[in-house]
């Protein structure tokens, strides 16, 4: 697996709690979406299964013992869907395709 360059936020515990302050939350989600894209590009993966999300280090930072809650993952995926960088594979939205580039770019 390729080495990933984690942003500083990845080791900042509040990064794993959804922030109630709206401006902060926006920044947080922005960082998360770009991190998810970077991670998938670096590890050359394309399928995200919500049921198995804690198996990868992306949403589960064992070093500082923090996990991202499912609600936040949903928020991230929703914003990815809006920007055309992800799409659900099944109706229950448990499996997602993550695009490294948008379909238009391909």
């Amino acid at each position: 697996m390729a080495e990933i360059e984690w942003p500083w936020q990845y080791n900042f515990p509040p990064f794993f709690t959804l922030q109630p302050h709206s401006e902060t939350q926006q920044k947080q989600l922005m960082t998360w979406t770009s991190l998810v894209l970077d991670y998938y590009r670096a590890t050359k993966q394309s399928v995200l299964d919500i049921r198995e999300m804690y198996a990868t280090p992306l949403f589960n930072n064992t070093e500082i013992k923090r996990k991202l809650s499912i609600e936040v993952v949903q928020l991230i995926l929703d914003s990815l869907l809006k920007s055309g960088k992800a799409s659900p594979l099944d109706k229950s939205k448990q499996r997602w395709l993550i695009y490294w580039h948008t379909l238009d770019e391909w």
């Binding site: 515990p13 509040p14 709690t17 922030q19 902060t24």
Partner: peptide, 8 residues
């Protein structure tokens, strides 16, 4: 906006 939380 001067603090953020870590809920565990």
């Amino acid at each position: 906006g001067r603090a953020c939380r870590d809920d565990t």
